[in-house]
């Protein structure tokens, strides 16, 4: 049986990864850009904030700097794609690949950093309440932005580039802005996750894309909001559900399932979510 505490932990982690899911939604769904930078930018956010906190920086400031660092990583991916005409997939892979070395450098050539929870933004109050407040504020800001003229332009380039062009939208700038914003959010997710754990590891970002995409798909399937910007909420809810599914799956001791099977289970959940989505679309 799953204990209440474990469900609460799933909700906390689900909320944090909700930001990652929103970031992935912005690129893969809103602007239709297959960005693979996320594995690198998640670890970048984690390593930047862990290093800063260990060196005595304010955890809120460390989170903001992580957000900016992710934004820069996304900016570079966008520039590779738009200015140097490198395919979106490859641009993301190159930057994520390079970020591995950058992250190691940031962490002082150490593969992991540990710090006390008391140094993180979750130290002063109830952890779940802090996470919930941060995620709610961020989600509301993003929904507002997507409803604004900026969001309208961002969504337009994802749907119809030709129409966007004749409407006076600078497609290149908006694409770069979209990829940059997405990675800023993913890096913030990485920062919050490392602070939640009090631990940062160089390999922390592996699988971020799959986890984020699965959350997006689960959210879209289960919570079908009519207004598109409101789908942002479904990303967060999908992320929470994903964490609960994983938790339930990992409790299958009788089937011999253990933590070593995490990636296998994640992959299976992704496939099932995709198949349900496909069937739902074809129906």
């Amino acid at each position: 049986m799953i204990a209440i505490q474990e469900i609460l932990t799933s909700i906390d982690v689900g909320l944090i990864f909700g930001i990652v899911a929103i970031g992935i939604y912005l690129t893969f769904r809103t602007i239709n850009f297959a960005d693979l930078t996320c594995d690198g930018s998640f670890a970048l956010g984690a390593s930047v904030s862990a290093t800063l906190i260990v060196n005595g920086a304010n955890p809120y400031l460390a989170s903001i700097i992580s957000l900016i660092s992710g934004g820069i990583a996304g900016l570079l991916t966008g520039i590779l794609n738009i200015k140097f005409k490198i395919a979106d997939l490859l641009s993301g892979i190159i930057i994520a690949f390079m970020l591995y070395s950058v992250n190691l450098r940031i962490m002082g050539n150490s593969p992991n950093i540990t710090f006390a929870e008391s140094d993180s933004i979750f130290a002063s109050s109830c952890v779940s309440f802090t996470i919930f407040s941060i995620i709610l504020c961020l989600t509301l800001i993003i929904v507002y932005l997507l409803f604004s003229r900026f969001g309208l332009r961002l969504r337009a380039i994802g749907y119809n580039k030709q129409f966007a062009a004749i409407s006076g939208i600078n497609i290149n700038s908006m694409t770069i802005a979209g990829v940059s914003s997405s990675n800023a959010l993913i890096a913030l997710g990485g920062s919050l996750f490392s602070q939640y754990q009090g631990f940062c590891d160089i390999s922390q970002g592996f699988g971020t894309l799959v986890i984020g995409l699965t959350s997006v798909v689960i959210g879209e399937k289960i919570f079908s909001f009519k207004k598109e910007p409101l789908l942002i909420f479904s990303c967060v809810l999908g992320s929470i559900l994903y964490r609960i599914f994983i938790n339930v799956a990992l409790h299958g001791n009788s089937l011999g399932i253990g933590t070593q099977d995490l990636n296998l289970i994640t992959g299976l959940i992704t496939i099932v979510a995709m198949l349900i989505r496909k069937k739902y679309k074809n129906a």
């Binding site: 003229r149 309208l152 332009r153 969504r155 337009a156 749907y159 119809n160 129409f163 966007a164 004749i166 409407s167 006076g168 939208i169 598109e228």
Partner: peptide, 17 residues
């Protein structure tokens, strides 16, 4: 010449950019 996934109003807002 239009975006089907958006509402008529959103399309008009885009045109008014």
């Amino acid at each position: 010449g239009t975006i089907g996934e958006m509402t008529i109003l959103e399309n008009l807002h885009l045109a008014s950019i």
